[in-house]
Structures are given as structure tokens and as C-alpha cells.
Design a binder for these strands. Structure first.
Lengths: 101, 101
DNA sequence: GCAACAGTTAACCGCGTGGTTCACCGTCAG
DNA sequence: CTGACGGTGAACCACGCGGTTAACTGTTGC
């Protein structure tokens, strides 16, 4: 299930959007402005991020406000920590094995 | 630069390979065995993981041994922690702002 | 030395993804 | 009321990605 988040973060544009939103919420237009991309393209990216559970957006009047979800990256963080733990314990096991011989 | 790792982890097959390798090194054939995929497909995935700096492979005789890199996930972990920190401090700032008013 | 086995390379294919443009809708300001 | 502005939906397109098969190379075991 975490590969959905990874897929969302795989695209440089989407990664930049997340980094931008970590500094605070903003509108879809403001996200598109600094880029060379058209608005519809950015909207598509936002939809992907939203379906990956990384971002929430609300329509306020005619502007769509986008913010990073509080729990956006916990799945990624826990998965990463888990794999690191597994791999490092295996390295430790190898170390003590070499120590014993 | 971290989007390269994310792209590598975006594919379920590649994610499974990483999770498998976190339990210990193995051969390319052994990686392909439990799946329904052909060997060349797995080899391609391995190449992607290798170019993303997540995995190292060495050819020993006629078998290619694959292992997870020790520093495989540090880039991912640090990026994640960084964004979480930014976002949470902004939330904290908002909290104290509300407190003051 | 020969056969089987692990991997590699190349050519090919379908399809999803990232992008565009254009027409349209709702909303805010004057 | 009307015009401009932010966003939406649809149709379309190019390209890369994940997968296949097939033919070939090198290695190992008997």
C-alpha cells in the first residue's frame, strides 16, 4: 500500500509541490505560477497526490486551497525505518558471526 | 535527486525486491522464482534499483548476487524527516499564533 | 567435452502517464 | 450586469515503462 505514496512522490513536479506545501498551504494557481506548466497539468498532479493521501484540497469560492496532510509521510517514514531495522539487524548478526569465528 | 529513489520504489515488484533483500542477499534467479515474471523482467528491475543507488549486484560465476546497500534508504529517510519537520514547525507556529490571540 | 543452467541482449508490444489545447462553468469586482 | 479570473472536463498525443519471447554467452557438473 505504501507504493502508492512512492509513486506519487516519484514525479519531480509532484515532489516539488509537496516540498512547497510543507512550507504552508496555497492555491492551485499559485502552485502552477512558478512552473512552465499549464494549470490542468498541475490539477492532475494534485489529484494524484490527493488520492495517495498526501494532500487535501478544498474549494473556497473559486480558488482551490491545497494543504499537506498532517499524517502525509508517516507511512513512508515507518516503512523506511522498518526496512532499515531489518537490514541493520542482519548486518549485526553477520558481525557477531564473524566475531565468533 | 531523491525522486530517483522514489521512482525506483514506486513499482510494487521493485518494492517487494527491496523488502526481500532487507532480509538478506540472494541471487537474481531466486528473486524471480516466487513471482510469475520472466527473468529478463526481474533483471530490468534490478538495474533500475541499482541505478537508484538502492542495491548492489556482483556477478559470482554464473549467478548474480544482489544485496541491499547499507546506505540505501538514508536519502529517503532524511528527506521525509525534513519535510515533516518543516510542516510540523509551521503547525506549531499556527498553534502559538492562535494561542496569542 | 557436453548438457544443463543462470544470465544477458535485443526486438518488440500495449498501455499508462504526463503533458497539451480548447471550450466551458462558477465566482468575484466594478 | 458584465467582464475577467480560477478552475474543470474532455479530447488528444508522444513517450517511457513494464512486460514478453527468442537467440546467444558463459559457467558448472558429470
Amino acid at each position: 500500500m505504501v507504493h502508492r505514496q512512492f509513486a506519487a512522490l516519484a514525479d519531480p513536479t509532484r515532489l516539488a509541490i509537496v516540498e512547497r506545501l510543507a512550507r504552508g498551504p496555497t492555491s492551485a494557481g499559485d502552485l502552477a505560477a512558478p512552473t512552465t506548466m499549464s494549470l490542468p497539468a498541475v490539477l492532475k498532479h494534485l489529484r494524484v497526490l490527493e488520492e495517495a493521501g498526501l494532500v487535501t484540497t478544498v474549494k473556497r469560492g473559486r480558488v482551490r486551497e491545497c494543504r499537506l496532510r498532517d499524517d502525509a509521510l508517516v507511512a513512508v517514514a515507518t516503512w523506511t525505518a522498518q526496512q532499515q531495522a531489518l537490514w541493520s539487524t542482519r548486518l549485526d548478526a553477520l558481525g557477531t558471526l564473524l566475531e565468533d569465528t
